[in-house]
Design a protein around this nucleic acid. Structure first.
Lengths: 344, 344
DNA sequence: CTTTTCCATGTGAACGTGAACATCCGAACG
DNA sequence: CGTTCGGATGTTCACGTTCACATGGAAAAG
């Protein structure tokens, strides 16, 4: 009455075949949706699989097809809202497409750490790679390792030998800066991300584009590390000089730290200083004052990255999806320049 | 001069064997650190591997050993600081131990979604599971699916058939509540997490324990969803009644939303209302006022989870590591009860 | 009525590795 | 000097699946 007691080994395609009274190959065909199977045969096989609680063996399949059905994600700064949201979306999308995802975090941004993480992914036999750790070095290392795995980066790297997801960070940064200019600010400081980050560079470029276009001067951007703590530190330094009326931070965390420092220094945001961030993390609208920032669709980015990579794996032509342009969200942290603070 | 051009197939253990003039089994032994290999032979094999750029085939190995060297993580609310930090730590620790990590996110907390995610992980042939989505239902489903995979949960579930990481959420919540009581607060409201979350329940229990011990009354806790937006919503409702002088929120995001609402309602934190959170996310100390909260070591939790799971996979006895007790961090959002607001 | 074609299915081999067992050889032992 | 032992290595097989090719039969084509 009860199904055969398992004898240690999991049921294989052959066990199913025996029970359904067909060859193992027929079972394989059912498994892979081969068209030339009589309905009645297919049903018998399916019943047998059900009865045995058969589960295909991924390793055996991978061995013979030499396809792992796994994609790798190289990421940095996980733990932060943006990257981890994108990763979650990547996993969801991959799962839906029948793929597995393996993530490797960059412990540090040293070449050694990058090589380590990449080796781990290569060892894992990933079919493709999504590079979410958009540091310039990563791509150098990637090129240096002579890895022939197709990969997709979340930022344009200037290299054209792979596909990049088009998120127009430059436009976002430019919009943020232009917003401040439109409010009458002439002295705008940029608190940028780390030097070797492509995202940081793009946002800086957008900032500078807007500044130059408006024919304004600016200090050299301060290079930060994305953290709120650094923002606080930078804010403390900045509030000693006060030769600016607005700051554009390359991400929200730094912007929030910045506002904290200004508050401590007795400066009012936005009356004395306007602050604009980037990312629109969930707390951005709940801090005091609510943060003006540039909204990014992290989940959408993750989804598209998967779509792009899968289409490449399938050898499909590049489907030029339209660029994602992040949108400025104006909240309370930015306001018109206050007369008393204009330095002319 | 140049190494053999690859003929489509990647070099196998046999190619290495041929080049090193040994049997393929000897190569296998070198690969697995077998002791009985002459040094000279080992070196010849290693040289051959180097020359051919040999990489072991994971699928073949998994097929013959029936071990995938992969652990699965079931998670929810990724994108938030805590879970994603733990996941990152899990990946680091697993990588160090030579394991791969596969994560499945819970799209919703419905049984169907849970089954989906678990199926995905089982399909992936994970050797063990770390359950980071500490919802009661998950364990019911897990039990219902009759999965024989060893798993580790990040919270005590009351079920004793598996290992749980000991993070004393109850003690943390109790400390937070006691802190408010010590400040003279008698009317404390608890903004809890979703009902079916084990963590939420533990924090609520800690809260109630402290309340009962101090012989205070309290409203039934408000059940939230962990988000800052919900905190804001709850804060708006709460500020209509004002029959309390302090709120203990089950996580920082809700606490921050709460403070936002109080600010909007003209209430001053901490003069009119004290607010305490839980988690100590990076922005907690930078919001206004800096948030008093309970600090959690998310990375440490992740590391320990891996250690625990691996020791179980190896069949080692349960190494009773000491409990992690999260620590109260007092900042500006909590203060002594203000005389004018005491309702007696 | 024979030949061709195509559908439904079966047979055998291969994928790359590790386990079990076999073999060879030199050293230790009596 | 024969026997035993164990270190170093080789041989064969199995893991579960898909692929290439083979087979039988029925329908279509001549």
């Amino acid at each position: 009455m009860s199904p055969e007691p398992q004898k240690g080994r999991a049921p294989s395609i052959r066990d199913v075949a025996r029970l359904a009274d067909v060859s193992h190959q027929t079972v394989s065909r059912v498994l892979n949706g081969h068209p030339s199977i009589r309905d009645e045969t297919r049903q018998r096989v399916l019943d047998a699989m059900e009865a045995l609680k058969y589960r295909p063996n991924r390793a055996a399949r991978a061995l013979v097809t030499s396809r792992s059905r796994t994609i790798g994600v190289l990421s940095a700064t996980t733990g932060e809202y943006g990257p981890s949201s994108s990763i979650a979306a990547i996993e969801d999308a991959a799962r839906e497409a029948g793929y597995f995802v393996n993530t490797a975090n960059l412990a540090a941004s040293t070449p050694a750490a990058i090589v380590d993480a990449l080796k781990h992914l290569v060892l894992q036999d990933v079919e493709g790679l999504i590079v979410m750790a958009p540091q310039v070095r990563v791509f150098d290392v990637l090129a240096g390792m002579a890895i022939d795995i197709p990969y997709v980066s979340l930022q344009s790297t200037g290299q054209s030998d792979h596909r990049a997801l088009a998120v127009d960070q430059i436009a976002g940064a430019r919009a943020a800066t232009q917003h401040l200019i439109d409010l009458g600010h002439h002295e705008i400081v940029h608190l940028a991300g780390p030097q070797d980050w492509i995202e940081a560079e793009a946002r800086m470029r957008g900032f500078l584009d807007a500044i130059i276009e408006a024919d304004l001067r600016t200090h050299p951007p301060i290079l930060g590390d994305w953290t709120a703590d650094f923002g606080y530190y930078a804010g403390r330094e900045l509030s000693r000089y006060r030769d600016f009326s607005a700051v554009f931070a390359a991400n929200d965390l730094m912007a929030i730290g910045l506002m904290h420092a200004f508050r401590d220094a007795g400066l009012d945001v936005p009356r004395d200083v306007s602050v604009v961030g980037f990312d629109d993390i969930p707390v951005a609208q709940h801090v005091s004052p609510p943060l003006t920032t540039v909204h990014q669709e992290f989940r959408e980015v993750g989804r598209r990255a998967v779509a792009l990579l899968l289409s490449e794996l399938r050898g499909e032509p590049v489907s030029q999806s339209e660029e994602i342009v992040p949108a400025l969200v104006v909240r309370g942290s930015s306001g018109p320049v206050h007369a008393a603070l204009v330095h002319y």
